[in-house]
Simulated assay, not measured.
Amino acid sequence: MPLVRLSGKVAGSSDPKRKERAEILYHLFSSGWDIYNANGDQTIKLSNIQNRILKSDAFVFCQNPSIEDYFNFASIFVGLQTNDTDLKDKPVILVNGDESWNSFMALIDHLIALGTIRQEYKQLFKVVEGSKQLVLTIDANYKEKTKLKKDEPDFIEVKGLYKENSPHNIPKRSVCVFCSASIRDTEYLDEGYEVGKILAKNGIGCISGAGKTGIMGKVVQGAYENGGWSAGSNVPHIIKMEGLPDGLNEFWPRANIYTRMEVMIERSDAFLIMPGGMGTIQELLALILLKEQNNDLVKDKKIVIYNKKDAKTNKHFWEPLIQIINSNQLEKYVEITSDISHAIDVVSNVAL
């Protein structure tokens, strides 16, 4: 029996989501699907998400999404963008009859216009209005295949893929910069370089997703060329696509994007969210979820969002995302600024 992972939580018998969920459960069960998280009571952990993806045959995201639902959806989106083989031929369905996902769809459209998402989202997932259309869509897109037991992938040989920085004392404090690896606009790239440079000059470590291109590559370059310490984590299938930047003092290979995030968060003292795509959204939402859970990984660690004003469009880069954060009463977990110098000052000061 194929297994579908159902998003969302149900908060008791009076929760308005309960009726919709019951209808979805009825139609899915009637169509021969087994359901994970049927009761809406499962809590996510970064360490086990990839295993849940592997075991699932399809993914359904219900109406009235929570911040956790946004994170789960962003995670699947990133997996599809990066050709995660565990997601190959697995239907992803969004139920949006009440238009409660519209703000997130608007965020995707906004980032497509700014160039950090290049895929048309209709190629990655299907949008339906209700439970009956959901079943027809999921059945039409599901391809049955034999499930194989999958061991953790071997880490690819990284020696020779990047030029190591000279030996360097590990700094007492480090800032993690979450950002785009695809932006090519020189104004954005110059700011990335400046971030790495200032962290280096202040004796603060620079942690990133170890991307070679875009803002991410420039952040590492800025730290490296100015005598700073930098480290990062990446996963085999992305390394094969993009390579690694020169100048890393430490590299922490991980099997999947979730344990990659976990080690970066664990080893950082503050977080700077720069312009990025769905991967950056995923990382920010993970930080907010961990804050909500009072997780020790993010205890007393500042999160600063750099809401850059784009010179070409005259729009603030993260405005649609900030609206989602505010509408979910999560603004207490982040500091927002449109001034890059102020953003760097804040994360630098809390990391000292």
Score class of each variant (00 low, 15 high):
G205V: 06
K143S: 10
S348M: 07
N51D: 14
K309F: 00
K145I: 10
T213N: 12
Q221I: 03
I239F: 04
R21V: 05
Y26W: 09
M264C: 05
Y224C: 00
G247K: 08
K197W: 05
R260D: 01
K149E: 14
M264A: 05
V350Q: 10
I112R: 15
H237N: 14
D185E: 13
G211V: 05
Y70L: 13
T186Q: 15
L330S: 09
E68V: 15
K9I: 09
A140C: 10
K308V: 10
C176K: 09
E292N: 15
A210F: 06
D84T: 11
N349M: 13
M261V: 02
V346M: 08
A113V: 10
Q81N: 14
K126T: 15
L134N: 02
F104H: 05
E335I: 14
S56F: 07
A11M: 12
A22S: 14
A11S: 12
Q123I: 11
K149I: 15
D185F: 10
A286E: 06
G40K: 04
V175K: 00
E20L: 12
N294A: 08
A113Q: 14
V347F: 07
T116I: 07
D89C: 00
R184F: 11
Y333M: 01
S66V: 10
L28G: 06
L285Q: 03
I336D: 01
Y258P: 01
A255S: 14
L94A: 07
K90D: 07
Q123C: 11
E319N: 13
L199K: 03
K332C: 06
I170H: 07
Q81S: 15
I325M: 07
V263W: 00
V235P: 03
K332V: 08
K132L: 11
K172E: 13
W252Y: 15
S14V: 09
G276N: 05
N349W: 09
V350A: 12
D86C: 09
K201P: 02
L28C: 08
